[in-house]
Design a protein around this nucleic acid. Structure first.
Lengths: 225, 225
DNA sequence: GTCTATAGGGAGATAGAC
DNA sequence: GTCTATCTCCCTATAGAC
């Protein structure tokens, strides 16, 4: 059911979306209320009707990014039968995570790019959300190893950090016109589960290697000081 | 014999190190010349004797980060015998990349954290350095696949993006007191080469082709939805 | 809810003394 | 080489009209 939003809520979301986009391109300090206002078709002073400070805005943007991913992955995992293998869980979690971060890409990118620049008080709550999401992954992997499904000699904690690091980095090079999210998810799962040396038969068809290169994201135009 | 630096060069390096640290913590726009000056025990105006603008400074920081890694990895690969396997090349490249980014951690972190916030004109040159480093990895992987060493069905271009994304992310969670760089490198290599399900130990195999798989896992299907 | 106007504080960069 | 002093610009946030 399509919820009807109050006029205030509509503006609020417009401001939020604009903020994510501007934070994404200019970082925390580089983002000005004026730039957000322009993007949201407002005047700078009007933003303060919806959010009482720049810090409150970035806090909201950060939480949306993590929560969207957590929710999507949780749902996808819950939809699996109880007897699902660790391999299947990892495949499903990767696909859900990827599709979520690409869908709320501005928020994900904003989150990544302001990381470490946001005042401690603001980022503390967000860090907790992020840690609890990491714990979910950790459990999937630990369970699979205990059942003898995963035979890797590598630390699962490190493996989790590798996986989430690489996954979140995808938004930096993903380009809508290139490979599909589904294809990326499949390749990523294959990579994570079987590595470079493992793998099945010679591959079906490899698309042009140049199809997806990094550094394709909208570049900010920043005035040089 | 330790090179003797001119007084000017010493100050310049002090400014550069300070800049990397401040850019790391505050991002591009959040970094002020005054903060860099404080860190370098100077006054803000004095920085302009060494660098003529904030943009020139960030440009220098960015390039140092990439060049340090490129140089270290290039040297490590060059030290390998010509008959080295793709697996060995990947192991060596991972170890060299990791130790380099941890050693120049401030520069690496600064680079990551100002990514996408730096004026286009400044980042263009750095992007070229970064791409040429990526091409080096690509070649190692392509060669190994052509020799039949890598049997993954995943795109090698995507795999390369995953690997470098995860590798560079390590600086975000690495803590000097924790696991050693060597241990992280070993686990990372095992993860990259054999995945979670594989169990290949970091065997000190000689250059004779290890034709037999180190484990007898059922090999992966294309996809198991 | 959104506007205009502005207070009050820093920012990058330059000039010239030492 | 490094300092102090300062110019000019633009930022966040508030006040009050509509």
């Amino acid at each position: 059911m399509a919820k009807k939003l109050a006029k205030s809520a509509i503006s609020q979301k417009r401001v939020l979306d604009a903020a994510a986009k501007i934070f994404r391109d200019f970082g925390y300090a580089g983002t000005t209320m004026r730039a957000i206002a322009d993007e949201a078709d407002l005047k700078a002073g009007s933003i303060y009707y919806h959010y009482k400070s720049k810090d409150e805005l970035i806090g909201a943007v950060l939480d949306i990014g993590v929560n969207a991913v957590t929710q999507r992955v949780t749902e996808a995992l819950a939809a699996l039968p109880p007897e699902a293998t660790g391999r299947q869980r990892v495949e499903v979690a990767i696909a859900a995570h990827l599709s979520a971060i690409i869908e709320v890409g501005d928020y994900t990118l904003a989150t990544r790019r302001v990381a470490g620049q946001v005042p401690e008080a603001i980022s503390a709550r967000n860090t907790r959300l992020r840690d609890s999401y990491g714990a979910m992954w950790q459990q999937i992997m630990n369970d699979a190893q205990q059942r003898g499904e995963f035979k890797t000699t590598a630390s699962l904690t490190l493996s989790r950090l590798f996986i989430l690091g690489a996954l979140n980095w995808t938004v930096e090079w993903y380009k809508p016109g290139g490979r599909s999210v589904e294809q990326i998810a499949r390749d990523f799962a294959s990579f994570v589960l079987d590595g470079l040396s493992g793998g099945a038969a010679p591959l079906p068809v490899e698309f042009s290697e140049a199809a997806t290169e990094p550094h394709d994201n909208p570049r900010p135009r920043i005035r040089s000081a």
